[in-house]
């Protein structure tokens, strides 16, 4: 078999992993499964697309940066898209999730997120139609890197970006006061208040991190595959599988889970056929959970 699946798997795993960080943070700090998380990805990708379009209209055609398929407008667009996605998610929290959380029943919030997911997706279809679109239609030549593996400059850049973001978020959550406050909230929200942690502030930071990473994952999918309203929803199951596989609440776990699912799916496509893609990742998920029910990096409560 060709080792090409390793590159494909790492890329798919990066997208899944970045999304799974948001899923795992929302689950451990806000205590619900957010089914709208995939749609944050799609909104992030479309917001970035609109920004890139606006920059194009203002500054004319901008040449791409050397070997990559995109130029600075995409980088600026991505940063604006992350900010937009974060604001959108904070707004959604204010009008929907924060009200539902007051009922103190996770299932109500989960159902609310289902509704938000459908509404967000339909809104995208309404504004942009369901026809796929692209950041760039240029075709990149993949460079051979040995062992029969080929990789494009875009793919290398996105893998590097993923590593930088994952390390950054990991340091933020383990080495800073904000991160310690997030850990405290996930372990004991009542005690967190007693020690002086502003719960509303932690909730905001959690949403912002999740939304910004979802936007990056959405833009990655947009660059490497295509942009369409269902792009995020289709990522939902692999993201949840990755978060559970890695152990809920663990950021390294979510990323490792994402890579395992991504590699397994890519390998399955090559070995047994594309129709088995989803099945294989879930067989792995179940196998791991049989042996280690709390996930790879999960920790038993007390």
């Amino acid at each position: 078999m060709s080792l090409q699946f390793v590159v494909d798997g790492l890329l798919a795993g990066s997208m899944i992993g970045l999304g799974a960080i948001g899923v795992t943070l929302t689950y451990s700090i806000l205590r619900f499964s957010n089914f709208a998380h995939g749609d944050f990805m799609a909104w992030g990708a479309y917001a970035t697309l609109v920004c890139v379009g606006a920059i194009g209209a203002l500054f004319g055609k901008v040449a791409p940066i050397a070997p990559l398929s995109f130029g600075w407008p995409l980088i600026v667009g991505l940063i604006a898209g992350m900010a937009f996605t974060a604001l959108l998610v904070l707004l959604l929290d204010k009008v929907l999730f924060s009200r539902l959380r007051r009922q103190e029943q996770a299932i109500i919030v989960v159902m609310g997120s289902f509704g938000a997911s459908m509404a967000l997706r339909s809104l995208l279809e309404f504004i942009f139609t369901s026809r796929p679109t692209y950041f760039s239609r240029a075709i990149q030549i993949a460079m051979p890197v040995g062992l029969g593996i080929r990789i494009t400059p875009d793919q290398i850049a996105l893998l590097v970006l993923t590593v930088v973001l994952v390390v950054g978020v990991h340091l933020l959550t383990t080495r800073t006061q904000t991160g310690r406050s997030m850990q405290a909230m996930s372990q004991n929200p009542a005690l967190a208040r007693v020690v002086g942690i502003d719960v509303a502030g932690v909730v905001r930071v959690t949403w912002i991190i999740g939304a910004a990473l979802a936007c990056v994952a959405g833009v990655m999918i947009g660059i490497l595959i295509q942009i369409r309203p269902f792009m995020g929803f289709d990522m939902l199951l692999p993201m949840f599988a990755a978060a559970i596989l890695g152990g809920i609440g663990s950021i390294p776990g979510a990323v490792l889970g994402g890579l395992i699912i991504g590699l397994a799916e890519a390998g399955a496509v090559q070995l047994i056929g594309a129709e088995w893609r989803a099945a294989v990742s879930f067989i792995i998920l179940m196998a791991v959970l049989f042996v280690r029910p709390i996930g790879l990096f999960g920790v038993r409560e007390r």
């Binding site: 006061q177 406050s181 850990q183 372990q187 004991n188 005690l191 920790v299 409560e301």
Partner: peptide, 25 residues
């Protein structure tokens, strides 16, 4: 400063992080 009766430490955080997290003010 209030010390609750039970569950008054963050069990998965280190002793040091339990102290650091209270230093916010």
């Amino acid at each position: 400063a209030f010390v609750p009766q039970t569950e008054n430490v963050f069990p998965l955080m280190s002793v040091e992080d339990n102290l650091k997290v209270a230093c916010g003010i």
